[in-house]
Write a protein that binds this DNA or RNA. Structure first.
Lengths: 180, 180
DNA sequence: GTCTATAAAAAGATAGAC
DNA sequence: GTCTATCTTTTTATAGAC
């Protein structure tokens, strides 16, 4: 099978166990591939696996978030569609965010630039929606950051409390909070 | 030396490298103790080291955050003092939060209950201040959660962007945002 | 592209002397 | 309370057959 086949399993594993906790033994079990086969697809080992997952997430971000935001139409609706997609990918707050996992794990330096690029693209796209709705550039950029803060913070809190409701409430309030 | 001597170094290491990245070799180097000495102080190994760090942070939370919040006086001032303390402990957004590291690392299940207790105490203390300032119980609890979201989210974003300003801005806005 | 088998390195943990 | 030395287990990684 081509290596893309295994990327969703890898994403799931890294989210479930963290970067360091996702050992080759667990990866082998989850994918059904022997270790040697994993190195056939990903000669660089776990680091290369994460890079493939990040490529996948870049594409997902583009197709789901950035596209929904850049479509013509009512800004509130566009932001609402983003929140709907986020609810899906984070299972309504029950699943953690891979970028945060990577930022706080032992390989943070290795992946920092990729994660930074994702955050910048995302925040920029939100800010663009707000600018189009008449908000000035600086405020729009800050509100884009506020959105990232609300998403990441509510996911952490949901994990910490063992209760997804902080994320759900944050997503419910986000569109009108950004356009306030 | 008594084991408390080494707790600040341990906290620093776990924040810098994550739970899994803080290996016994690194811990040995940072504390100046051999591995056998570390096991003398912490027979349970790394897990027990983290428990000691959490005990230390419980005490810090009590002496700095909870105390500042529960003191008599203007609610805005009390929240402002909390933010000042947070700025210190997170080095104005340059240092990550250990609780988030533990929640997203491989040992998340081991420490979840301790982290949950910390979050609940903290959020409850913030809510109490808001109740005293005339805000109704439910809103106060939600705003306490909003505070935790803003803190954790802005720390993640600061790490991701490689720029502490989101945290600094969040701390600057937090008191009046909570009392709005 | 996948496997079995094996190697190499790293990490966690302990024994026993001082 | 700390050390040196050693052990065990886990993890990463590779060789070579099919």
């Amino acid at each position: 099978m081509p290596k893309e086949t295994y990327v969703p399993s890898l994403l799931s594993l890294f989210r479930q166990h963290g970067y360091d906790g996702a050992t080759l033994a667990k990866i082998s079990e989850a994918t059904g591939l022997g270790k040697a086969s994993l190195y056939h697809h990903f000669p660089g080992g776990k680091e290369e696996m994460v890079v493939s997952v990040l490529d996948y997430l870049d594409h997902w971000l583009d197709q789901n978030i950035l596209q929904a935001l850049s479509q013509p139409g009512d800004p509130q609706d566009r932001l609402q569609r983003m929140c709907d997609r986020l609810g899906e990918v984070y299972d309504d707050g029950r699943q953690p965010c891979l970028s945060a996992i990577l930022l706080l794990g032992s390989a943070r330096n290795v992946f920092h630039d990729r994660v930074q690029a994702i955050y910048q693209a995302w925040i920029g796209a939100i800010a663009q929606v707000l600018v189009e709705s008449g908000i000035d550039e600086n405020t729009a950029q800050q509100r884009g950051e506020d959105a990232a803060i609300a998403i990441q913070g509510s996911l952490i809190l949901a994990q910490g409390l063992g209760n997804p409701s902080p994320f759900q409430r944050a997503m419910q309030q986000l569109p009108q909070e950004l356009l306030r």
